[in-house]
Design a protein around this nucleic acid. Sequence first.
DNA 1: TAAGTACAGGTCTTTGAAAACATATCATTG
DNA 2: CAATGATATGTTTTCAAAGACCTGTACTTA
Lengths: 144, 144
Amino acid sequence: MFSKTCTYAIRAMLFIARHAETDNKLGIKEIAGGIDAPEHFIAKILQQLSKKGLVSSLKGPSGGFYLDKKTGKCTLADIVQAVDGDSLFTGCALGLSHCSEQYPCPLHHEFKKIRKEIHEALKSTRLSEFNEELLQQFTYLKNR
Amino acid sequence: MFSKTCTYAIRAMLFIARHAETDNKLGIKEIAGGIDAPEHFIAKILQQLSKKGLVSSLKGPSGGFYLDKKTGKCTLADIVQAVDGDSLFTGCALGLSHCSEQYPCPLHHEFKKIRKEIHEALKSTRLSEFNEELLQQFTYLKNR
DNA sequence: TAAGTACAGGTCTTTGAAAACATATCATTG
DNA sequence: CAATGATATGTTTTCAAAGACCTGTACTTA
């Protein structure tokens, strides 16, 4: 469903949401260790997200990544779009470039609804909400 | 959503369903030309599907690929599973190996419903049905 | 208080593996 | 034998991953 890069991005952001605040920033090593992801790869992804304003960061000693009031409000849809683009939400399931309402591919109408549901689900989920939810129920981000 | 191989497979099978019958078999060249796919690549995919019994084929002069009563009944879900496996239907959205009902990832419950819908949509669509539908409405399989 | 220095994110380049695509050869059948 | 699917192997492209190096921040210290 998502690209590997995208799943790492989501997991990293969820990890940050759970552990980091303005006065408690997380280093790349901590994040990579916390979600079992390659360090350099997660660094690259987070810098990409930071550039687009989805996560806050600070250089220097005791620096790191964190969420403030602004960045904490970003949705999972924002993350997916920043990493994978919006092909998941708008592209043709069969990869046909000219597929449209007027000239639909055989799967067009079936998948239009499903795509919308996926988009809605991701749009309605803010990182700030996960923060509490994650503390309550048992949800893992590690892969081993 | 699907891999590139998978979209080619679906398009090829839809093309066969529309044009081929037991007494009118389609060669690889015709199929490749009909859906704008690389010839040898589509051959490999169809042989894979043929091996798994999703499409009928015959060697020799005036041979080719076609659908009979048995193969015509296969669903789009069969094709997707044969090519991409069933990771799309069962795998974790975040790629977590231990994600389960008991230890769900943060997206588990949201996506369980969506996955099921995708599976249902693909399962309920038989190639034989598309045959008529395609003849009625204007649906393209080419990409240029 | 202003250089110096260590720390941590940011950028760019290179490597490695896998997916996508192509070529050549073999096997089957009318 | 000729047409056509089956198989095996090779090439290209893409993307995940790693490495080396740059830039900004904050603390130290004379």
